[in-house]
Every structure is written in C-alpha cells, then in structure tokens.
C-alpha cells in the first residue's frame, strides 16, 4: 500500500453503500406474483363462461395478504357491458371468502389475443400456507352474459397444433388422422363450437395406429372423458396413459360425442393440439392465472432461502467481498498522489 494513499471521501463511501443497496432493495421490494400458471403464448381457451357453469382453479398461497388474482381472459364476442364474477373459496372448508365483479372497461382489452384481467379484493391477512380455489363465471345468465373465456394450460409439451379452423363439423363421430411429432403422447385437445353437457353422456376418444396407411388391429388408446362444463367455442382435453413410442407414428382419431356436438376444423380435418409428457403429467389442466399478496419481507426472504438454499448466502458473501476488495483497490489507487 502506498504511503501517499488517502482514505475515500465520505461522499464516495456513501455512494458505495447506496450502490450496494440498490440490488437488494429491488430484490426484496419489487412486486412479484405469489403463484403463477404461465403459458406463452396463450392457446387453449376453455370456452364461453356461463353463469351456471363457473370455471374453477385451486392454488396454494405462500404469503399473507392475498389481495388480487389476475385471470387470462379473452372476449370471444363483443361484450356489450357484460360482467364477470370471481369468487374466492377456502378449498378445505368450501366457504366463500371474497367475491369480486368486473365489468365495462376492465374487460374491454380482452379482445384479440386476450389480456390479464385483475380481480382485486380486500386482502386476506392470514392467507399464508393455505389452499384456495377461485371460480370465474358470467353474471348475466344465458347469451347476455356469455362473451368471455379463460385460458387453460396443459402441463406437458405441445407437439402438433392445428389452429382453430374456419368451419364446424356437425357430426357426433368425427374421424381424422394425426402424426405425432414427439414421443410420450399423453393428451389431445380438440376445438369445439359446442360440446353439450348431457346427463350421463361422455366424450369418447379412440386412437388406432396406422402403418403404411392401414389400421393395425389393436386400439392404442380408448378413453372416456367426463364433461364437467358444457363447452361453447373452446378446447376440450382428452388425457390418457402416455404412449412412449409415439414419435413419428400416425394415428386414426375417432371421437364419439354427445348429440349436438360440433367440432371445429378446416378443409383438412379437425383442429387439434397434441400434448406430450410422462404419466406424472396427467390431470394437469390448469387455468392460466397469477395471484398477488401484500408485500411481506419475511415471506420473500423465506421463499428465497427455500428455493436457493445456502447458495444464496454464500453467493452474497462472495459478491460482497469482491466488491469490498475492489473498493479498497479503487480508493487506494485513486488516492495515490504519485499518479497525478
């Protein structure tokens, strides 16, 4: 160390402290969703929400002060001031906790590709480590209320995607062909102009493998799905045991649907999406949403520690030590009069 070195000025020391504090301040204070089900881009809307058939989603909340739920929504037809209602439930007791109605301008931006619509409510002070459910439904019954759809996300990998077509196919047993681009085929979603809910009726799917244009004898997949909500202009998912060797294989699709069903397609056949993923990916159709809680420093630090573990603190120590070493060198060389 040079004998001509001098200590840094108070301004420089203060500047260093402020510079060091910027990052941690952002880390701890910047808003972030408590839970987030993400899908980019949004693809599979569930169909028109109706007053009697709310879309439902459960979720776990990490923090206290749950105060807002954003739902990915799209207006499928002009809304004319229709309203939507979100109800927050305690998943364990089934007790409704909050109810929010949204109308007019907040829903006005949901045309085209859709938008996040925030439903904010009085914060739940004791929401940490609790499981909730929310439902979203139209307020006005019948056609007057049915304009909006939520988006769904399947917890798997998208393979084939035949876009929403320009025509509906008014047959209850539509057939088509499909070549799987990936292995582990585990779900197929089809576009429906209408899939009615009828007592005891189910939607059935059969997949038969084809080799050189000929059907093989065995049925590869046969699945019957309950229709929990009637679908109007939305995608409906059939999940089944994953087919590990599906890559590159061609299948004949056979659907058996309730009377009144209308599948959407184009001149080549049905609109569809294939999803791929192992057995653990079954039963993973979620709504696309995110939830927000009040700022909670302790919850933020706990979340950081839980996710990053000891590495967080070791990394912080290494980073801080390196900056202090550099500061010492900078102040030493900057204060060295022999340089002037």
């Amino acid at each position: 160390m040079s004998s001509t070195s001098r200590l840094p000025s108070h301004a420089a020391k203060l500047g260093l402290l402020l510079a060091l504090a910027i990052g941690p301040a952002f880390l701890l204070l910047r808003p972030a969703p408590d839970t987030e089900i993400r899908d980019i881009p949004w693809r599979a809307h569930k169909g028109v929400l109706q007053a009697d058939f709310p879309a439902r989603q459960t979720f776990h909340c990490d923090s206290n002060g749950l105060r807002q739920i954003d739902v990915a929504l799209v207006a499928l037809t002009p809304s004319n001031g229709a309203e939507l209602e979100l109800v927050l439930w305690d998943e364990n007791t089934g007790v409704p906790l909050r109810s929010v109605r949204i109308h007019g301008g907040a829903l006005g931006q949901t045309g085209g590709g859709g938008a996040w619509v925030p439903f904010d409510f009085e914060p739940l002070e004791d929401s940490a480590d609790r499981t909730f459910a929310f439902t979203v439904a139209a307020v006005q019954p019948g056609a007057a209320g049915g304009h909006f759809s939520v988006f769904q996300r399947y917890r798997g990998q998208l393979g084939r995607h035949v876009l929403w077509g320009d025509r509906s196919l008014p047959v209850v047993r539509p057939k088509g062909q499909f070549q799987s681009p990936l292995g582990n085929l585990s779900a197929l979603a089809f576009a429906f102009a209408e899939l009615p809910l009828k007592e005891g009726a189910k939607a059935k799917l059969r997949l038969l493998e084809m080799v050189d244009g000929e059907l093989v004898d065995d049925v590869t997949v046969q699945v019957e799905s309950d229709i929990d909500l009637p679908v109007f202009s939305g995608w409906f998912f059939f999940e089944f045991e994953a087919i590990p060797d599906s890559r590159g294989k061609t299948y004949q699709i056979e659907l058996d649907l309730p009377e009144g069903s209308r599948v959407v397609g184009n001149e080549h056949g049905m609109s569809l999406m294939s999803f791929h993923g192992g057995a653990e990916a079954r039963g993973r159709v979620d709504l696309v949403f995110r939830s927000w809680a009040d700022r909670d420093l302790l919850a933020r630090i706990t979340r950081l520690h839980k996710r990053a573990g000891t590495r967080l603190w070791l990394g912080a120590a290494a980073w801080l030590t390196s900056i202090l070493l550099l500061a010492r060198i900078v102040f030493q060389t900057a204060g060295n009069k022999s340089e002037a």
Partner: peptide
Amino acid sequence: FLVLVAFSSYFLWGGLVFNQYVVLGA
C-alpha cells in the same frame, strides 16, 4: 466504479436472483 457497482448490484440481486428464485412459474 460506483456506477458499475450499482449496476452489478441491480443486475445480480434485482435481476438475476429476483428472476431465478422469486418469479417462478408453477
């Protein structure tokens, strides 16, 4: 130096660590 420290601090903690460990989709 001070500008770089401020940016490094923002980048590492307000950016990298925030995005890697706080915003985590389910």
